[in-house]
Every structure is written in structure tokens, then in C-alpha cells.
């Protein structure tokens, strides 16, 4: 099975490990990721704050490139890129004038409606079909993840079909259970980590992160799992600082969902760059004898 792939800027920079892991995991699930050529930045939150036209036009160029591949589905692992691209597609389909205006500037025009999928939308059928269980060599016994979705996997600024429960999504839990992990039930799975506020409004973002971290610890989680590179980066890189500031004694590793799948598939953690986390992510795996 071939599927178009949009990594986005983070996966080509600070979250390169996520890009590597996605490729490793999907290949093993017999899904060939075809990275669309010469993609551009989706504009992220900045474009929607600064300019309504660019918020639609930047992802539109990528949708045009994706359409030219002739593939029927595109997977976008970053929640922000996924949300912005899906919203752009929706706006274009509701506004033919805007679509014509943007298409006039594009070499590869937006046409048709390629299915824009989050990583969970591609993984969930692989759980249901038994493919993940078939490829999982190792059960992730003892792993109690707090599955963290953040904002943009289930909440959209316009009317699009949400592929999971809005307030209490279960996609990540479904994958984790198939791997033998025991995800905890908790209250902050769709709360905001502050996203780029960690840079431009640090106190605010750290307050939001402290609530997320406190609840995960209180519910007995021994790690976080995320699919969004920015959520992952924030909880990972700022956890020590936020913990000190708000008196949270325990620090939890923040895994990408692909790291857990890869581990159960028996991939080498170093090859998956699990040692590149800010909050130690190797120790817990050793402690649980998972590596």
C-alpha cells in the first residue's frame, strides 16, 4: 500500500527522530510512505493569526502537489500540519472563488479531494485488521502511558468530520493496548500545552504544562505518549523546568507513538533515536526490561 506523506518542518528539524520512526514503522506495516516533493510549510498557527488567505494558500500548494501524485490518501503526523491542511481543504471546497484565485498561482493545482489523515487514522485500521499485533514481537508490559492528544487532533476551527471523540479520544489508547501497554484514564489529554507560547509567552505555557504533568503523575502514568512534535517537544524539553517551578517531583518520558510501536516490533532504540529525548526516555525501558 502506498500513501502520500507530508512530514512538515519539525520532522525535518528538531523532531527528525519522528520522521525516521514513521518511516521504519510504516514500512514494517507494509505501508510505503511517499514523501510529496518540494512541499512547503503549512503556515502553522502563525499564518491563521496573521493572514486568512495564507492560512489556506500555503497548505493548498501542498494539496496540489499531493493531488499530482494520484494517490488517494496523505498522512500528516504533525497535528498542526494535519489540522491546517485539513482546514485548508475544507475552506477550498466551500469557496470555489478562493480555490480559483489560489490555483491561478499554483503549478500543480488543487483538484479532487485527497483524504487527509492524521497518523492515528492510518494506524487504527492496522490495529483492527490485526496487522500491528502480527508485527508486535514484544508486549510493552508495565508501560502505563498518559496518551496526550493536545488540541489539533480533535478540535478544528471549522466544520470538518472529527475522526475520534472530541473530548475523550481513544485512538492512541487503542494502539497502546494492541501493544500490551496499559494507558491510564486521565483528564488533560486534550488540554493545550501552549504550543509556540513556550517561546513567546513562557509563563503561560509553563502553567498549562504544569496542569498536564500534575494530572498524568497523579493518575499513575509512567510516561506520556504523543503524536504531535510540538506537544512532544514542549513536554519533553520543558518538563524539568516546569517540574521545579511547580513542585512536581516525578518526570515522565514523552514518547512518540511510533517509538512504542517500533519497540514492540523489536527495532533498535538507538536507531530510532530514543536516546535523543530531553527527559530521559531510555531508563524506564531498561527498568521495565523492554530493551
Amino acid at each position: 500500500m502506498e500513501i502520500a506523506y507530508y512530514p512538515g518542518c519539525s520532522l525535518h528539524a528538531s523532531s527528525e527522530l519522528y520522521d525516521i520512526q514513521c518511516k521504519m514503522v510504516f514500512r514494517n506495516l507494509d505501508v510505503e510512505l511517499k514523501e510529496i516533493e518540494d512541499w512547503n510549510c503549512c503556515g502553522a498557527t502563525a499564518a491563521s493569526k496573521m493572514n486568512d488567505f495564507l492560512a489556506v494558500a500555503l497548505p493548498a500548494r501542498n494539496l496540489g502537489i499531493a493531488a499530482a501524485t494520484g494517490l488517494s490518501e496523505i498522512v500528516i503526523p504533525c497535528s498542526s500540519c494535519y489540522s491546517r491542511t485539513l482546514v485548508s481543504q475544507k475552506r477550498l471546497s466551500c469557496d470555489p472563488d478562493l480555490k480559483n484565485t489560489i490555483n491561478a498561482e499554483l503549478i500543480r493545482k488543487v483538484e479532487g479531494d485527497i483524504k487527509v489523515s492524521s497518523i492515528l487514522e492510518v494506524l487504527k485500521p492496522k490495529v483492527i485488521s490485526g496487522k500491528i499485533a502480527e508485527k508486535a514481537k514484544k508486549k510493552l508490559d508495565g508501560l502505563k502511558p498518559a496518551c496526550y492528544y493536545g488540541c489539533l487532533l480533535t478540535r478544528f476551527p471549522c466544520d470538518v468530520e472529527v475522526p475520534d471523540d472530541v473530548e475523550n479520544p481513544q485512538g492512541m489508547e487503542t494502539v497502546c493496548r494492541a501493544l500490551g501497554a496499559a494507558p491510564v484514564d486521565w483528564s488533560y489529554k486534550t488540554d493545550c500545552c501552549g504550543a509556540s507560547a513556550s517561546v513567546n509567552d513562557a509563563d503561560q505555557s509553563q502553567l498549562l504544562m504544569s496542569r498536564i504533568m500534575k494530572d498524568a503523575v497523579a493518575r499513575g502514568a509512567n510516561c506520556f505518549v504523543a503524536t504531535c512534535p510540538l506537544c512532544q517537544f514542549n513536554l519533553d524539553a520543558y518538563q524539568q523546568k516546569v517540574g521545579e517551578k511547580y513542585g512536581i517531583e516525578k518526570q515522565l518520558p514523552v514518547y512518540f507513538i511510533t517509538e512504542l510501536i517500533g519497540l514492540s516490533m523489536g527495532f533498535d532504540p538507538i536507531e530510532m533515536q530514543v536516546d535523543r529525548h530531553f527527559t530521559d526516555a531510555m531508563g524506564l525501558l531498561k527498568e521495565l526490561k523492554l530493551i
Binding site: C9, C41, A44, A46, S196, V199
Partner: peptide
């Protein structure tokens, strides 16, 4: 921040 983000994207097409 948002203005700088967009300047960078305008410059090279990627952030």
C-alpha cells in the same frame, strides 16, 4: 513571534 515565523516561511518556503 508570529511575524518572524511568517518572515522565515516567506524567505525559504519552510520554517
Amino acid at each position: 513571534f508570529h511575524a518572524s515565523f511568517m518572515s522565515a516561511v516567506r524567505h525559504l518556503g519552510r520554517f
